[in-house]
Design a protein around this nucleic acid. Structure first.
Lengths: 230, 230
DNA sequence: CGACATATTGAGGCCTTTCAATGCTGGTGG
DNA sequence: CCACCAGCATTGAAAGGCCTCAATATGTCG
């Protein structure tokens, strides 16, 4: 259960401050970033802009996404409170980042982090593990997108959000639109909507107030998600 | 063109020895790994086994893949000569690795590499960039799998292999089976076969001897692949 | 050369998409 | 305070792309 959570949620393994788990208190104190307050829909950085900063979400939800030339959109990740985003390339951002809801994020200068890595062996190690966990998540997503049905993807998404969220395994926030979810799962908004309706009909989930979802039968949901992986 | 190649082919950015680009000759010499000769289909490591080694391909082709509980298979990557594989998790392998063809690979003790990272700031930096490039590739693959048609996926795959291969941009080796390609692209073997036939019919490609493919119209193939990304 | 795995091709079906209409909700201004 | 508006969600019907099942070709290795 614990390990599954880590796999599902690479970013959360690094609670604020970013390097808290670097094994060095000194490190943690170096990164007292600058907090940003964001309106709904606000762009945090654009695709193609140079990478100078990493961000940690304090409150709200952030999405990173790319637009294809023909207008198709892909969402690479949603960042929840406590998670880090901005790690999407070596030199320039290969995705843009926008606030899904009102949000507060903290910016960390990437330069500072890299300097630190150069000086602090344990930070380097920790940072490496952090990146690897993101890589694991991306690989799992490839499997989800390549080999799983719409029903499995949506169930898996809900289970993942519940595990990453702050309301326990049976309640989750779903602040993003059906279109965002669809772009994240490689589906259409209509299919997402239909799949959610089917889950409601089967009494696996129920709607709550404020875009919340209650998971009524977590075992059945996990089963529908395809048992553990992804 | 050059940058596109790097994006497509993260592993090749580190030719043998693994750390040749670490900026430190000293580093390169530390990793004189042990060469392994592999028969066709031989397993190099199993899913779930502890990660102790990283591998560089000297000759032949290697695949990393996972089997889902219900028998569906996913291939995470193909490693070509000069490329590195084995970087698929923090503690245990989350994929297995097998030789697609007869192959020679060189094993590097991960422990040595991590020790080195701790001691050599430049190695840490270099390693970090290396991992990030793998992450970029995985993210691009998510877009490929989530938002592109069968025709785009296959064209993109061929273009990618040509860029990574050693015969220039108009000739490539295709040693893996249609099933392997299908499991890599999130399709079925039949669809891959049909798509290749369509490309042949349109004179974008032609078969060569020994599982080679000639790219007759590279521009058209890139166009079919969806223009640059992926 | 023969046996087996792999590749190709065809026909039909299913799942997801597309197109379209309706209902809902939250924010805004009269 | 309420009505209106715009965006989002839901649902339906039809189409399309990819998959499944099946048969036939090709090639590869003993």
């Amino acid at each position: 259960m614990q390990t599954a959570m880590v796999t599902r949620n690479p970013a959360q393994a690094f609670p604020f401050p970013v390097f808290a788990k670097a094994g060095s208190a000194l490190v943690a104190e170096r990164f007292l970033g600058r907090p940003l307050r964001l309106a709904r829909g606000a762009e945090i950085y654009a695709e193609g802009s140079p990478i100078e900063t990493l961000f940690e979400v304090v409150s709200g939800t952030v999405r990173t996404r790319r637009l294809l030339p023909d207008g198709r959109r892909c969402i690479a990740s949603f960042a929840l409170p406590g998670e880090v985003f901005g790690l999407d390339g070596t030199g320039r951002h290969r995705f843009s980042a926008e606030a899904v809801t009102e949000a507060v994020v903290i910016a960390f200068a990437r330069k500072d982090i890299e300097d630190c890595i150069g000086r602090e062996p344990r930070a380097a190690h920790s940072w490496q593990a952090f990146t690897l966990r993101h890589l694991e998540a991306a690989q799992d997503r490839c499997i989800l997108l390549g080999r799983r049905s719409a029903a499995e993807r949506v169930a898996s998404f809900l289970a993942d959000l519940a595990d990453r969220g702050q309301h326990g395994p049976h309640l989750l926030d779903l602040p993003m639109s059906r279109y965002d979810i669809a772009d994240y799962l490689g589906l259409t908004a209509e299919t997402v909507s239909r799949t959610l309706s089917a889950l409601r009909r089967r009494r696996l989930i129920a709607d709550g107030a404020n875009h919340q979802i209650h998971i009524l039968d977590r075992d059945a949901l996990d089963e529908q998600a395809g048992e553990g992986d992804a």
